[in-house]
Design a protein around this nucleic acid. Structure first.
Length: 497
RNA sequence: GGUCGGAUGGCCGAGUGGCUAGGCAGAGCUCUGCAAAAGCUCGUACAGCGGUUCGAAUCCGCUUCCGACCUCCA
């Protein structure tokens, strides 16, 4: 498979990826609502689409990656107590909305850095695009698919559905949604329960409010993504990503808005990552079962037996293909940690492993080549990072065997070795983007030189068969967090525990 | 209630008709002064019941259980 295939939620099938305007690719991913701290569940889409972003660039595409920051309050509009999340929290904490939003935005950025996610090309904020949102709402009104009610503006889903397939993305049938909808207690300003807000009139106590042709208010839940995606990627773009829980109503409504405004199908490929579960249930605010990324990284949570390094978390996420659910547990994370360390240790030792030369044809050259090729095919097959990692482990075993002289060098030619080594390194460093979690030898020159002195002393003791001294040096270093390893070739390496 | 998706060895997770991923844990072996690391070998799993087929974890039907969405949610 030389071409990239991705599962398009629109067709529910794997489709060959063909950009609208190669080599350019426009990719929009729904970002966080910065009214609270990012939790483990949030990490999944950002890691997933970070890998996609990296892979697309590797394939030679020029990618504009847009990921929004939702800093305008979304609200429980059908609940009795409609409320602005950002506004409410701000009052509780006695903070300015902007201050609160800034705090959580900063935290979010820090966590993304920890997870080694590349920053997007553009990171637009909802509050920074009120004008664009109002413009789009007016365009929709001109098209006759929105109406004003008590200072709010609603999208007329019934009217839209007469000429469009509302429900195509999420596999819903409008009639069933109508019959299955709940009693709304007559508080409804909407003509129909399926309609959704484009603009909401702001009650007096609402902190975030902007002037609009319909009075003071704030934008509806879905309009920001339509407006900002259109602004930065055009009326039609290639990829729109996000969590599966956003498929309906958020993305379905986004399509309706954008399509109404521009007359065009906005997105060619919709991609949705599955949820992270905990004890079999989706991790989410409404379930009160979230573990924030900070808690995870520091081990500050009753559910956690220990802290987990961000790279372990990234590895854990990538061990599953993005469309499957991923169940959190301490045991699963700890297993991931062990595996991750093995892979990273191999990578580190590979850096200093060189082919002895003089072998132009190895008995297993073909196998090494097949494994390298498999990595590419597995990425192209809907980003199957689970298989990629499995293949990397197979390569790791082979490299370790070569390093420890458990396999003769005759199995591999110099060329193939160098190629495979570079592919292996590239996939870990640049595609999966996993960084060593521990300080490798050499990163700290002073420490390394200090330890080299101790290694020398121990070597002298060993030469005199003074094992009491040599073992004492090693054991004391272990207590200090430094592990010495006697390598097969007589050298001694070390790493931090 | 409606719509959709799952059920894989002790655990996590790949795999859409035959070639029985991978990781973690476990057992054994090799290497080693001892460690650590590493390599090799082993366990032969696919919710249940039927069916299609020469052959099914993989296709079809039924049953049981679980989850997601339908309301803010990555």
């Amino acid at each position: 498979m030389n071409k990239l295939y991705i599962t398009n939620s629109l067709s529910r099938q794997k489709e060959e990826f063909q950009p609208l305007n190669p080599p350019y690719v426009g990719m929009y991913v729904c970002g966080p609502t910065v009214s609270g701290e990012s939790h483990l569940g949030h990490a999944r889409p950002y890691v997933t689409f970070d890998v996609l972003y990296r892979w697309l660039m590797h394939l030679g595409y020029k990618v504009r990656y847009v990921r929004n920051i939702t800093d305008a309050g979304h609200f429980e509009e059908e609940g009795r107590e409609a409320e602005d999340k950002v506004g409410k929290k701000a009052k509780l904490e006695q903070l300015e909305p902007m201050e609160l939003v800034q705090k959580y935005t900063n935290l979010y950025h820090d966590m993304m850095d920890e997870l080694n996610c590349l920053r997007p090309s553009i990171e637009p904020t909802a509050t920074g695009h009120i004008v664009e949102q109002i413009d789009m709402i007016q365009e929709i009104m001109h098209k006759g698919l929105a109406y004003v009610s008590n200072g709010s503006v609603y999208f007329d889903v019934i009217q839209y559905a007469k000429n469009n397939d509302y429900g195509r993305l999420s596999g819903r049938v409008l009639d069933e949604m109508i019959s299955g909808s709940r009693d709304l207690d007559g508080q409804d300003e909407k003509r129909h329960s399926a309609d959704f807000a484009l603009w909401k009139n702001a009650p007096p106590e609402h902190i975030q409010r902007w002037n609009s042709p319909w009075g003071e208010g704030f934008p509806g839940w879905h309009i920001e993504c339509s407006a900002m995606a259109t602004k930065y990627l055009g009326a039609q773009f290639d990829i729109h990503g996000g969590g599966m829980d956003l498929q309906f109503p958020h993305h379905e409504s986004e399509i309706a808005q954008s399509k109404t405004a521009s007359g065009k199908e906005p997105v060619k490929y919709w991609m949705h990552n599955n949820m992270i579960t905990i004890n079999g249930r989706k991790m989410g605010k409404s379930y009160n079962n979230t573990i924030t990324l900070r808690e995870l990284f520091f081990g500050n949570h009753p559910e956690l037996k220990q802290a987990f390094h961000p790279m372990v978390v990234r590895f854990f996420i990538l061990q599953t293909q993005y469309r499957g659910t991923l169940d959190f547990s301490n045991e699963a994370l700890m297993a991931a940690e062990k595996g991750f360390e093995r892979l990273i240790n191999t990578l580190a030792s590979l850096h200093n492993l060189h082919h002895p030369g003089a072998i132009t044809q190895g008995s297993q050259d073909q196998e090494f080549k097949n494994l390298s090729n498999a990595l590419v095919e597995q990425m192209n097959d809907d980003l199957n990072t689970a298989q990629v990692i499995a293949t990397l482990f197979e390569l790791a075993s082979r490299f370790n065997a070569l390093k420890n002289l458990q396999t003769p060098w005759s199995v591999i030619s110099e060329d193939i070795f160098n190629q495979t080594k570079s592919t292996f390194t590239f996939f870990i460093n640049d595609i999966l983007a996993l960084k060593p979690s521990t300080l490798a030898a050499g990163d700290d020159n002073a420490l390394d030189q200090t330890i080299q002195i101790l290694i020398e002393l121990r070597k002298e003791a060993k030469a005199k068969k003074d094992y009491a001294t040599s073992d004492a040096i090693r054991n004391k270093l272990i207590n200090a967090g430094i592990q010495l390893k006697d390598e097969k070739d007589g050298t001694v390496s070390w790493n931090k525990q």
